[in-house]
Design a protein around this nucleic acid. Sequence first.
RNA 1: UGCCCGGUGGUGUAGAGGUAGCACAGCGGACUUUGGCUCCGCUGACCCAGGUUCGAAUCCUGGCCGGGCAGCCA
Length: 563
Amino acid sequence: MTTTDSKPSTDFVRQAIADDVAKGKNDGHVHTRFPPEPNGYLHVGHATAIALNFMAAEEFGGKCNLRFDDTNPTKEETEYVEGQMEDIRWLGFDWEDRLYFASDYFDQLYEYAVQLIREGKAYVEELNAEDVREYRGTLTEPGRDSPYRDRPIKENLMLFEGMREGEFDDGAYVLRAKIDMTSPNINMRDPTMYRIRKVEHHRTGDEWCIYPMYDFAHPVSDAIEGVTHSLCSLEYEDHRPLYNWFLEELDLFRSRQIEFARFNMSHTVISKRWLAQLVDNGDVTGWDDPRMPTLRALRRKGYTPEAVRDFCAKVGIGKTNATTEMALLESCIREHLNKSALRRMAVLKPLKVVIENVPEGEIDYLDAGNNPEDITAGTRKVAFSRTLYIERDDFMEDPPRRFYRLTLGREVRLRYGYFIKCTEVIKNDSGEVVELRCTYDPNTRGGSAPDGRKVRATLHWVSADTALDAEVRLYEHLFAAANPHDVPIGGDWRDSLNPDSLTTLFGCKVEPSLKDASIGESVQFERQGYFCLDPDMSDDHLVFNRTVPLRDTWARIQKQGTR
RNA sequence: UGCCCGGUGGUGUAGAGGUAGCACAGCGGACUUUGGCUCCGCUGACCCAGGUUCGAAUCCUGGCCGGGCAGCCA
C-alpha cells in the first residue's frame, strides 16, 4: 500500500478520532472534556491531558468542556476548583461557557439509577463493605451472588428512596448494578453505583447524602454533554466494558472511551498523593514551591505556558508506561526564553574588581543590547566605573588547561564594555582572593579592539556604583534519583530527595534596570540562566528564581576533567 | 493462578507488508562580544523464537518481560 498524500503523523488517539469522523460517526462531530477531580492542584501530567483534550477537539473542529468530577465530597474543595481553573487558563485553554460539574447531574443520575432499578438492573445491597469484598471473589476466583441480589424491585425502590432521604447511616446500604458476579473482569461483578455519605458537598451542600460512584457518574455525564470521545488514562481500560454497559442499558448517547498512558517525569514525583506528602512533610514550602512539578510551581519558577504546551506536544502520547526526562522540559523553556527574554547582567557570587586607570567617581554609560535574538528589543545603558563586580568563578589564580576567563596578567572582555587586564590579586589573611586590581584599555570601548586583537572570554559584570542587591534562589532537581520510587529494599522514596534542590544566594549584585521587572517576567542573566522575580520580593528586597540555567559547556569540560 | 493492556536508540515518539525517521540527551566540529544561540557531523533501537511472504518493527503462533485490576476512591 502506498500513499501519495503524506498524512501528518498523529498519535493513536487522534487516529481513532479521525477514523470515527471518517466513518461519519456522530455526524463527524468531535467533543471532548477534561474531567479533573478538585482534590489538589494540577501538575505537568495534567497538562498533557489538558492539551490532548483541548487540542484534539480544536483540530477536529470541536469543543472541549471543563467538567469537575466532584462525586466524592469527602475529598473535594472549592479552593481546588478555582486553583485548577486558574492553571488551565494560564496554560492558554478556554472552555468558554462550558464549565460543568458532575454534581450538576445529581438529579439526572438519581433518575437513571431509579430507571435501572425498575428494569431489574440494579439493587440495594445491605452486606457491609467487608462482606461485599468477600462475595466479590478474587482475581482468580469468581464471585458469588449477594443474598440481596434478587430483592424485589419495589423493595429496592423503597430502600433507595430511603437512602436518599437520609434514613440510613453511612455504609448501611449501597446501590449496585446487577451485572455478573462471575465475570473475569472484576469491574463487572455488580459494581457499586451509589454510597451513603452524610457530608457536605462543596456545591450541593447538604442537599444529598448519597453520592454516585465514578463508574456510574462518568459515562452518564459524558453522554449528557454529548462527549464523543472520552479520553482517560490506562487504568480505566478494564472499566470500559462497564462504561459501555451503563450507556447501553440506559440507552444514552454512545460516548467512546479511549485510554492513553499516564505521564511520568524523571527526578520528581507526579501523583497528587506523593506531592501532598512532600507538602505535609515540609520538604517543600507548598504546592507552589518552584521545585514542585505543579503548574503553579512551574509558573512561579518562570516557566511560560508556551513552553509547557510545546513540551506536551513533544512528549506525545502513547500506551506504554513511559517516563519523560526532565531535560526535555528544560530544553522547551530554554528554547522559548532564548527568543523572548530580555538580557540583563547579574553577578551571583561577586568578586570586587578595581580598574586602576578609571578615575574615582567617573561613570561611563555604555550601550547594551537587550536581546541578540531580537533586535527590536532595543538597547539600554549600563554603567561602567572604577569599582565593579565580576563572578568569582570567572577568575582563577591557577587556571587549568581550558580555562579562558580571567587570571593574573590575562586580558578578557567585559560584556558590552572594555577589555580589562588583571594586574594584581589581593587576598585576605586566610589566603582568599578578595579583590582584583585591573587596568582597562580605553580603545576597546564597546568590546572590540581597533588593533584587531582578540580575547578568549567575555565576562558579565556590574558597576558597584549602580548595582542593586538581590536574593537569588537556585533550583535543581527535587530528587537526585531519576526514579525516586526505585528505591533499595528497606528504603523510602523520600531518601533520594536532593539536599541541594534549593540554594539561596544573598548579596548578589544586579544591574539597576532589574528594579523595573515585574513578578514572573522572564529575564536572562547573561551567561547564567533565565530568572524571574518571585512574589516573595518587596520594595526594598529583590528576590529572583532561577527558571533554568543556560547550557554550560565549561561545566561539562570540568566534569570530563574530573573523571 | 484469572482478565485486560503494552514492549522501536539512554529517554520520549513516528512507522499500518517495501531504505527504521524525528526530538531530547550524549560525543565531535564550525561560528561566536553570552563556554548561550545557531549550523554541521557522529554514536545509538525494532524483547525472544518460530511461521506466513519475494519481502515483517508491522500479520499469525508460542514464549519472555513490564504495567493495571479484588474502594462504599477517581
